[in-house]
Design a protein around this nucleic acid. Structure first.
Lengths: 212, 212, 212, 212
DNA sequence: TATGAATGAGCCTTCATTCAT
DNA sequence: AATGAATGAAGGCTCATTCAT
């Protein structure tokens, strides 16, 4: 998804200053850098990741890195924006809650898609939590995303469970889903994907509809 | 490295076994450093925190810092161990679930105490998530803590909700509580403490007992 | 650490196996650093020499230094290995002893070559004795060198003077030659080069052939 | 030997500023510090030796150290002066060379006494060579000592071997003896004391009297 | 478009020395 | 006479960023 031909509306991540057209070679280099970014942020976290690690992983040079990104944060932002779009899209497809069994199936499917996204972009998502120091730029990007994400859920919850604050409940549930995915990914919780999805579906649904 | 002094009973932090006894002055310095650590980790996070920030906050010198701690991580560990003990203690007091109204009140109280702990030590707790790179020492401390914490809940949940994997459910709930506290503390969620507690109590209870 | 470049034939220093090929500019920088190392170690000794002194002498920056060497010791090692090769080579050319006058001339020539080597690399050789704490790496390099150096002499001595332990005698003579060169270089002994060489030739020869 | 009662001509090492009388306790502390100095300089060398090492070895405190010595160098100087006196004394007893067998026996005895001294004070002697950077104070102390030491020999040699520069020859021989002792002490040369003494006696004698 | 090389501010850590009790 | 505690100037090393080719 993350292409860099400047000037096209399709582009999601941008070159630092100059918005130059990229030829095939440039596009390949850019892609290598983005992929390397995901890999290195995954392995070392945002702060510990060095530009040197990234260019080595991308098999390119420091000079080249700065041809494509203004700095390390710029690369992170590019990845983050990309993830954000995916997540917002996913959030907008959060299934409507209904008390019948169908609702549960749709919810489980949706959770499966979230897990897929997390598998792919987890490192970037996690790096946000590392950057959540309030006044930093990343913190804001991450924070806004979570809030936006939660807002989508809040709508559905508002209808289904009138006795809780929908915003808070939604955020709580997002937190639950995100962290659970994280624990599974980082092997802190030794449990299979399917079991996690089942449990999350059950618990999430219960949390919204509440006890009898 | 200068060893940290043996415990004095009053505090649990900064007191590994091998240390020498500290005089009153030394104890005061140690306390200033520990407090400064919490403050600085809160403000800047683990990586961004500089020893210089900490000694300035503690109104002492670099040399003195290294008299009490081997390095920044050592200070963090001291704080982390302290938090861990508090949290494990709190976890062991997680109220038994009962379907009547009493259960909800106890749960809300317990959540209140968790929120208090988070107010005090949130920075340290959060810094863990920053350090969760799997093979690092901190990651392990933090990971183990969460698991232990969740295990306490799992016991109760196992009895109350036989149709979910208690471990996963417990971890999911812990995640929800922790992250929610975090969002409130970091002002990413603009909501009052009481509302958060109410909502969390409702949702948590519902999550465990499920829909009618 | 940035690896040091592969050898270019012209020089043997700073050229471990694994390194990348250096361009002309890089080679010049490396050479400046090596030369600066000799100069600074000469002036201040191994311990007292600061990386800062070295980079100033080489007219380059700290960062650059660490591009070529892992640390001060690594630079020293590079120089030491270089010296060691020269010395071993020289040792292998130690003249065969014969009781006639010819032997003495060859010996004097050889001593002259040793003195030349000492003029050029004395600082490094001397720094070894500073590092001779037994279990350190340098100590070992230096120690092995002296032993190897002495072994070459021992062969000749074994034949010439059967009534002394050739190894010990060789080492004693090496010690004498090295220290004398050192005293002259460090101006602790105010004597001209030629006189020193004459005396050493006489004494060394006498030491081997012994009294009538 | 190294007592510190100020004001008595017998004293060889002195307290920094105040020349106060020492009671029994003080004398014991002083001795512990001096002994610790020898031990630590032996183990780590002059530069690498830390005051902290010394006070730990002496089972006393930093504060106490500075009660007895102005600084680390002052302690070293105290030890050095002490050694110097012993060495000069020994040098003055260097046996007169005579071509008969008796001379060899006396020489061997003398070398044995030198070896004893080296066993005891080797570390300090060696530390000199580490400090021989020309313009340092220690370098001067050490250098002068060697020169003085050599001068004693030079007198005898001048008579015995008129065809070499006696000063140079003496220095060369001193160098040989000192380094050989060093190599044996530091285990770089695996040879027994007796063999070393025999060989040194033979070689030294031969060096002076020359071949038949 | 790519890259090898250089830079230097910034941070961590050590250790000789001083101070207060 | 002794000591625990404090200090801060050095000095080592890293790494984001820039430059010249």
């Amino acid at each position: 998804m993350a292409q860099r031909p400047a000037g096209t509306g399709a582009s999601r991540v941008g070159t630092p200053a100059q918005g130059r057209e990229l030829r095939a070679r440039g596009r390949r280099t850019l892609r290598r850098l983005l992929d390397a970014g995901v890999a290195v942020f995954a392995e070392r976290g945002l702060h510990a990741a060095r530009v040197d690690d990234i260019v080595k992983a991308a098999k390119t040079s420091h000079g080249t890195f700065y041809l494509y990104f203004a700095n390390k944060e710029d690369l992170f932002r590019a990845l983050a924006v990309d993830v954000a779009e995916h997540m917002v899209e996913l959030a907008s497809e959060f299934p409507a809650f209904t008390p019948d069994g169908d609702g549960r199936g749709a919810l489980r499917d949706w959770l499966g898609r979230f897990a897929d996204l997390y598998d792919q972009y987890g490192p970037v998502i996690r790096a946000w939590t590392e950057a959540e120091i309030v006044d930093s730029e990343f913190g804001r990007i991450g924070g806004e995303l979570v809030v936006r994400f939660a807002a989508c859920l809040a709508e559905r919850i508002g209808a289904a469970a009138p006795d809780v604050d929908p915003e808070v409940a939604a955020l709580a549930i997002v937190a639950m889903i995100e962290r659970s995915s994280y624990y599974v990914l980082s092997r802190q919780l030794e449990v299979g994907r399917e079991e996690m999805l089942d449990t999350l579906a059950t618990v999430t649904r219960a949390a919204v509809y509440g006890p009898a």
